[in-house]
Design a protein around this nucleic acid. Structure first.
Length: 499
RNA sequence: GGUCCGGUGGCCGAGUGGCUAGGCAGAGCUCUGCAAAAGCUUCCACAGCGGUUCGAAUCCGCUCUGGACCUCCA
């Protein structure tokens, strides 16, 4: 049973084999820190976090590189060529790096909220200007880029002509044919500098008003749209590495350009497996800046967006995302999130119940069920090995819930399962929920709160004993309003859960 | 216009040529002082039309329809 991943290059599932035994190099396109992250951004970072965690679970030593794009790219749409970041900085009266820092911090905060593991290396574009310039020089030297008015452009046509012969045409990833797209490209800024409309900038000459600027062999300017990822992935992962990830919307032109640049420079196709997550949609439309339909993460966690009726915990979002396969679109709605919230609560409570079950040295009284559970647990790995099918693992987990709760609440005999399978369940669920899926409880483990609640529970017990149901119900109802739910267990004990 | 991907029950979503996906919501029951929780049972599907097949939601064709990319975009 080996890991299979869907490779965007071949558009097929392929058996994953790392270049170096036991090691995986993975590069994922990170955020542009010129604004606050929204729900759509959360998907790749959660998706690839789980992929990272799963690779670790499989025993690989993984170098996970995720960049921070902190050098501004362009604003198009007929405007003057401007550095996006410096443009906004002027509006907000901030230093560019101050703005970048602010949004980097906010991004890191969100990643922590989601319980995403930090990448091994998180390089910034501004920290790798030298590497980018070096790479551009290489490309010029090889004859695949040309200088025009202090800017440098990649010669797509020449690349396509030469590399098509080697079976590596421009468009290899996105399935595009450059001849067919000539008429569709809109008027871009400084179009006249390009020899060909398909050419893209490696380096842009900075107009005087540009704040972010660096000296280069071609004058003062800033790096082009795609070169940072090529430069940084090469530097930290080598000419060829295992996995390159990102959102599907980056396939063209971003990843296509990356392939062209790196291939010229390193004479090799940079990544073996290209993995792309699908979009989060809202009312069927992609969530994105251009559509004006984004929900920022802070709005989600705070419940402050108009379409939301409540705040949503980061773990709810994480669970919501993992209930879908990463290559499918995920349609967001307040209702869908509420459903995810309830589902996660049920799953998590069963998980906590499971961890509290006594492991007794007993033989199962329900062999058929025991076999079914063994099968179900074995499928966890199978499903993950099949292109990270977290949705199917989740479905299996939910099928375990009634069994666990049934035993706990004595709706099933205590010896329904053998001690060994209970132990296996406990281990496997812990590994999957916490280590691989990266979910965690809300961490309400407050002695003070617990003491207060025990006091109330005892008072209520006394009231109930005296059939003073007015008092007992008042306590229960008031606690509900405060988000604490009391549960009268079968054995007469009382437990509670905090929302 | 080009390239590509979808259309699954009230909602979100897996999936495979023949076996209940799963979650949320709804209904009934058990438990309970009443609830909640939990358990059990249950309703509601595979856009449409043809074709292949013993058998298709799953394969093929057509129609309708939604979306992504082609421009910064996760």
């Amino acid at each position: 049973m080996s890991l299979k991943v869907h490779n965007s290059l071949s558009r097929k599932k392929e058996i994953f084999k790392s270049i170096t035994d036991g090691h995986v190099g993975m590069y994922v396109c990170g955020p542009t820190v010129s604004g606050e992250s929204h729900l759509g951004h959360a998907r790749p970072f959660i998706t690839f976090d789980v992929i990272y965690r799963y690779l670790l679970y499989l025993g690989y030593k993984v170098r996970y590189v995720r960049n921070i794009t902190d050098a501004g790219h362009f604003e198009e749409e007929g405007r003057e060529a401007e550095d996006k970041i410096s443009n906004k900085a002027v509006i907000e009266k901030l230093e560019p790096m101050e703005l970048v820092q602010k949004y980097t911090n906010l991004f890191h905060w969100a990643m922590t909220q989601f319980n995403n593991l930090p990448p091994s290396i998180e390089p910034t574009a501004t920290g790798h200007i030298v590497e980018q310039i070096n790479m551009i020089e290489e490309i010029i030297k090889d004859g695949y880029a040309y200088v025009a008015n202090g800017s440098v452009y990649f010669d797509v046509e020449k690349y396509n002509t030469d590399y098509s012969k080697k079976g590596l045409p421009y468009g290899i990833l996105s399935g595009r044919n450059i001849e067919e797209q000539l008429d569709t490209t809109r008027d871009l800024d400084n179009q006249e500098e390009k020899r060909n409309k398909n050419d893209f900038a490696l380096w842009k000459n900075a107009p005087p008003e540009h704040i972010m600027r660096w000296k280069s062999p071609w004058g003062e300017g800033f790096p082009g749209w795609h070169i940072e990822c090529s430069a940084m992935s090469t530097k930290y992962l080598g000419d060829v590495f295992d996995i390159h990830g990102g959102g599907m919307d980056l396939i063209f032109p971003h990843h296509e350009c990356e392939i062209a640049q790196s291939t010229v420079c390193n004479h090799k196709t940079p990544a073996r497996y290209w993995l792309h997550n699908n979009m989060i949609t809202i009312n069927g439309k992609k969530m994105g800046k251009s559509y004006n339909n984004v929900i920022k993460l802070s709005e989600l966690f705070g419940g402050t967006h108009p379409v939301l009726t409540q705040a949503f915990h980061p773990m709810t979002i994480r669970f919501f995302i993992l209930q879908t396969h990463y290559r499918s679109t995920l349609d967001f709605s307040n209702e869908a999130l509420m459903a995810a919230e309830k589902g996660l609560k049920r799953l998590w409570e069963a998980y906590e119940n499971l961890q509290k079950l006594d492991i007794k040295n007993q033989i199962s009284s329900d062999k058929a069920l025991e076999e079914k559970i063994k099968q179900s647990l074995a499928e966890f790995d199978e499903f993950m090995n099949d292109d990270f099918n977290t949705a199917k693992v989740m479905a299996n987990m939910f099928e375990l819930v009634p069994v666990i709760n049934g035993i706990k609440n004595k709706q099933l005999p205590a010896d329904t399962l053998s001690g060994s399978i209970i132990e296996l369940l406990q281990q496997k669920m812990k590994t999957y929920l916490e280590n691989i899926f990266g979910l965690k409880g809300d961490g309400v483990d407050n002695e003070q709160l617990n003491g207060v609640l025990q006091l109330l529970i005892n008072i209520r017990k006394e009231a109930k004993a005296k059939k003073d149901f007015v008092t007992s119900d008042t306590i229960r109802n008031e606690l509900i309003k405060l988000g604490v739910q009391l549960k009268d267990e079968k054995d007469g004990s009382v437990s509670y859960s905090v929302n």
